[in-house]
Design a protein around this nucleic acid. Structure first.
Lengths: 333, 333
DNA sequence: TTGTATGCGTTATCAA
DNA sequence: TTGATAACGCATACAA
């Protein structure tokens, strides 16, 4: 490996001078040129491990997400990566698979690697970033808040998203709207369901059918299972709000397999369906600006790395209803 | 930060002894216990940066992929991550966005970070991993071979996949089968198209309609554009092979928007559609065992890290046709 | 402006 | 088995 010593020797200067040139400190022009020439001739690349050990801070930023197979998070990742890379940081992505133990492992590794900063979409409600912050590392929470941690946070307006989706179905004439949301310990899932409930409380003057709220996991199979269950009831609902994109996919699959269309059973999805094979107009959905979430989180992280102090900030980004040609309820009950 | 010195002081031993205990070298039982107790009481975690600098090798493995928003690659990532994590390595994912410059940057960083190994799905046909290998780092190519590099390689049988998809359509009665594949400089795209061509050459006794091969980019919009173009021709084909999952999604979207179904225009997809919102039975597709590719690549990487020498091995994994209830051609031309 | 020398935290060599 | 110490490659405090 070619080290700073090799460059110094070739340029006929000290390693300190080489280091200064490479870090933009004041060096006389002629010597600087000598160093640059030597570095180029030797194809020198500074060793980041040594640099990190010395500086106590790496040029790496980590993004920790719970489900790398969910387009919601990969789109988010793009946003974070674009922002951070533009600032010269390399972004590494870590998938916790929703496993809090894996998450803790990643956090430990990140800390031990002297990572400059961390964007975290928490796997559970008890992520511990205290040591991170104590050691002066930047942390930004995204999509899911980190309880008891005063960190910058970028969130979707989940209650609002739940409201939009529900109202779209109501406005299309559906009167018995169920909701399939995510696990009770994921706050985004709970909030979206709360939005659903709010709208129903506001618009419905009749007693509601009980058992219309289902908690799936936030995956395709979860959506499938709950949708099958709802459709199998003696008095099935006439419409369903899908609590996230994957649940929506599962619900639509079940519909398709039963030969039903979104006109037969209304369906609105919270989240985008980039790979749905349906026209984006086919059903109402609440588009969530995931990429923008990522860029916002990335920007805040960079500010913190650059030294911004002060209490944790909170950015809440609204979803946007895309109603398209929402099929209307066939019968008004 | 609590360092090895703190532990040594608390345990009343030298840092060398602490290091030995932590690395499983021979230490007397009583002193080992002292060290372990001290380490636990101080909540000591070895600094990975220092360890990496000293050992000249980190415990990190990188997976570099060209499109993190493509389920094909995220599924692959799961396979690699599962394998590597089981062996105690932390896996970091890097998205090149198909940009060879970004890829080179990531490779430089990985080298400079003393990464233990690298699984690479190359962004282009000229990835340079020579320095990596010269410096004794493990490299495995996945999905796309790395020209001029004698590395372990895990590939799909792309020609075979193209054949399967094409034959499925032919067998269903379609007689003018077009192909939308990926860019000419991505070998998987070319190979899949070659499989398509082979089958047509074998089965068709009539002159072929020219202009039936389209090169999209391997994304949804690429599939949309090419599908629109094909359907807009004065003599459109009666069926289409989609060269990858995203192209398939785009093609299906166009179909759906025009009120057509896979019975009107036959369509077979090379790759899986985990988020298509269609029943998996709705159309024929060639399932590609991406996760298994990942585990195979991860396993080979671990072997190399463990010191396995010898020439580059090559694993070719076949796709698997899932014909479901393939719609038959409405008219036999 | 430049060079010398030290330390970042760990592992490994060498001697005891 | 154990400890003292050098070395990994770099950045910086200090001296010149």
């Amino acid at each position: 490996m070619v080290t700073i010593y090799d460059v110094a020797a070739r340029a006929g200067v000290s390693t300190a001078t080489v280091s200064r040139v490479l870090n933009g400190l004041s060096v006389s022009a002629d010597r600087a040129q000598l160093v640059l020439d030597a570095a180029r001739e030797l194809n020198y690349t500074p060793n980041r491990v040594a640099r990190t050990l010395r500086r106590q801070l790496s040029e790496l930023v980590a993004l920790v997400i719970p489900d790398i197979e969910n387009p919601f998070f990969t789109s988010l990742a793009r946003g974070v990566a674009d922002t951070a890379q533009q600032a010269g940081y390399s972004v590494v992505l870590c998938n916790t698979d929703g496993d809090v133990d894996k998450e803790r492992q990643f956090l430990d590794v990140a800390l031990s690697e002297n990572i400059a900063g961390l964007v975290l979409a928490a796997a559970g409600p008890r992520s511990d970033v205290a040591e991170f912050r104590d050691r002066g590392r930047a942390v930004v929470a995204v999509d899911r808040p980190i309880p008891d941690a005063d960190v910058d946070t970028v969130l979707i307006d989940n209650v609002g998203a739940g409201r939009m989706a529900t109202r779209a179905l109501w406005d299309a004439g559906f009167r018995d709207v169920a909701c399939i949301t995510g696990p009770v310990d994921i706050v985004t899932a709970v909030d979206r369901a709360r939005g659903w409930q709010q709208v129903l409380d506001e618009v419905s003057d009749r007693p509601r059918v009980p058992g219309r709220l289902e908690h799936a996991d936030f995956r395709v199979d979860g959506g499938r299972a709950c949708m099958s269950h709802l459709l199998g009831l003696p008095d099935p609902p006439d419409a369903v709000v899908a609590g996230n994109n994957l649940v929506g996919v599962g619900a639509l699959q079940v519909l398709s397999e039963r030969g039903l269309s979104p006109a037969d059973v209304g369906i609105a999805v919270i989240g985008d369906l980039p790979f749905s094979a349906l026209s984006p107009d086919a059903l109402p959905f609440v588009s969530l600006p995931t990429r923008e979430m990522g860029t916002a989180a990335g920007a805040m992280l960079l500010e913190r790395i650059a030294g911004h102090a002060g209490p944790g900030r909170r950015v809440v980004i609204p979803g946007e209803l895309r109603a398209g040609e929402t099929p209307r309820a066939a019968t008004s009950a």
